[in-house]
Amino acid sequence: MTFGRALLGALALVIAGCAAAAPAPAPAVERLRPTVLAELPHDTGAFTQGLELAPDGRLYEGTGLAGHSRLRELDPATGAVRREVPLPGELFGEGITVVGDRIWQLTWQDGVALEWDRMSLTLLRQVPVAGEGWGLCRAGDRLVRSDGTDRLRFHDPGSFAETGSVAVTLDGEPVTEINELECVDGQVWANIWQTDRIVRIDPADGHVTAVVDAAGLLDDERRADADVLNGIAALGGDEYLLTGKLWPASFRVRFTPA
């Protein structure tokens, strides 16, 4: 009897310990929608792959397609192209991000990242990258890259060396085809390719903490000759600039509960 009671007591302690060690449930995922504050013209020839507003107020856009890729500075008030430079040869441009007086630009399947001088838009060097390049943003002392899989990959902002990665999940399921990125206040906003969804990701654990449904942002008539939603730039406060590949417009928005 004494042995039985001791065994039961030990089992109770084990069960209690397991219960105490159980991870806390993930917080509920916010459901948001973009509320349009203003509309700007956007070049319908721009196959937008990256969009970012620098701290000094300069707006940059990276575009894709082999032999037609560009790095551009846009007028943030009108959307007009202020200046642009082509990527070398047939490189297929992808996401961009500003790091001080430099800009990093990914290429899709060419295996390199490009480092540009931001003021002159002069190409400084090409750095090897393993895997594909999709989206790119800067989060503090590291860069965050997407490659079309369910992972965010981290890079050193000086050398572009890969330093780690995290798997992205929504309600416990992998999130793939993560595309253009924007880092804001320690979180990563990401377009999901071939959809009208934008998600907010906690890069510490890869959990999606918010989903934005941007369906209908561009009306059906203008969407007929356009491609997918792709391009998100934080404007400060709680405002963002959204656009897409070959879209005729960009939208200044605020994310509000759906």
Rank of each mutant, 00 (worst) to 15 (best):
L143K: 02
R223N: 04
P88M: 12
G148T: 03
A66G: 15
G67T: 12
L246V: 00
E180W: 11
F160T: 06
V29F: 12
L37P: 02
S159G: 10
F47R: 02
G133K: 01
T78F: 11
V166P: 07
G67S: 10
W116Q: 06
D156K: 03
E94Q: 13
G236P: 00
D185A: 15
A26S: 14
S146N: 06
L71Q: 06
R33V: 15
F3P: 01
T122E: 15
A130P: 03
I15M: 13
L53C: 05
L53T: 04
L32N: 11
R254W: 11
I15N: 02
F47Q: 01
S250V: 10
V81F: 07
G172S: 10
D43L: 08
F3L: 15
T209M: 02
L170N: 07
T78W: 09
D141H: 14
G216D: 06
P34I: 08
V199H: 00
V199M: 01
E52Y: 03
A234L: 00
V211Y: 06
P86G: 12
L7F: 14
A20S: 12
F154R: 02
P55W: 12
G133V: 04
L91H: 02
V175H: 01
G111Y: 07
D101R: 15
V188K: 02
L71W: 06
D150G: 00
L59I: 09
A204V: 15
A113V: 09
V199N: 02
D43F: 05
A210L: 09
L51M: 13
H42W: 10
R151T: 13
A19H: 12
G17P: 04
E239M: 07
T107G: 02
G17Q: 09
A38Q: 14
G89E: 15
R31C: 07
R83H: 03
P76C: 04
V175A: 08
T122Y: 04
P25K: 05
R70C: 00
L7Y: 09
Y240P: 01
T35K: 14
V81N: 10
D238I: 00
L65H: 13
T35A: 15
A66C: 08
D110S: 11
I96C: 05
V81I: 15
M1D: 14
G62A: 12
L106Q: 01
R5G: 14
L124C: 00
D110P: 04
A22Y: 06
R254I: 11
G186K: 03
Q105C: 12
T195G: 03
L87C: 12
E94T: 09
D205H: 06
G45R: 14
W104M: 10
V14K: 02
V98H: 05
C183E: 01
E115F: 01
K245C: 11
G67V: 13
V253A: 03
Y60L: 13
R223Q: 15
G62V: 08
G95H: 10
A214V: 09
A215F: 03
I232D: 06
W108N: 01
W104A: 08
Q105F: 10
L114N: 04
E177Y: 10
G231V: 10
I15K: 01
G111T: 08
T44F: 02
G216M: 09
G4H: 14
A234C: 08
T107K: 01
A21M: 15
V85D: 03
D213V: 13
D171R: 15
A190W: 09
G57M: 05
D171G: 14
A26P: 03
H155P: 07
L40H: 06
K245G: 10
N191R: 05
